[in-house]
């Protein structure tokens, strides 16, 4: 089981690297789906089956469909393709890469190793999550619903056809 978890984590990590290094957007989307499925595997192995299901259904399902649609609707710009070669040169990625590596190192260094007795493996069921969600965190659920509503309205407003305005 442990090896399986490490394998999933490794796949997720490699997939993420592939996502940010692809030139063609559709390939990146495919690798992102792989990453998300691997992350869902990790979640399932962590005992969060409910979260893993949601990760697959909502993230790898719904959100990725959005990405695919948008990539299809953009006639992948020709000027972009010409410039994509540029960032492969070290002077374009060295700075951000060093910055990200530095942050990663610091995070790993700052994380104090946890030891001691852990809880026995008893998976948290959807029932526990639901009780927490609609008991203690119910105000947060309301706020999240407002956030979703605001997102819906702004997406409608931004994305509506403006041809008649001009």
């Amino acid at each position: 089981m442990h090896a399986l978890a490490l394998l999933s984590a490794g796949i997720a990590f490699v997939g993420a690297i592939m996502v940010i290094t692809r030139r063609v957007a559709v390939h990146a989307v495919l690798y992102l789906v792989v990453t998300l499925l691997a992350v869902a595997m990790v979640l399932a192995l962590l005992g969060a089956a409910f979260a893993a299901m949601l990760e697959i259904i909502i993230y790898a399902g719904a959100i990725m469909v959005l990405f695919v649609f948008v990539v299809m609707m953009l006639n992948s710009g020709q000027p972009d393709a010409a410039r994509e070669g540029e960032w492969l040169r070290p002077r374009a990625w060295a700075g951000p890469g060093v910055l990200a590596g530095l942050l990663c190192g610091e995070l790993l260094y700052a994380a104090t190793p946890f030891s001691g007795h852990a809880w026995p493996l008893a998976p948290l069921t959807a029932r526990d999550v639901g009780l927490g969600l609609f008991g203690h965190y119910v105000l947060m659920v309301e706020l999240a619903s407002f956030l979703l509503l605001a997102g819906l309205i702004s997406a409608l407003h931004i994305g509506r056809n403006r041809v008649e305005d001009r």
């Binding site: 910055l99 990200a100 530095l102 942050l103 610091e106 995070l107 700052a110």
Partner: peptide, 9 residues
């Protein structure tokens, strides 16, 4: 990100 690095440091 840079600010985060410095703050962590």
């Amino acid at each position: 990100a840079g600010g985060l690095c410095v703050a962590l440091a």
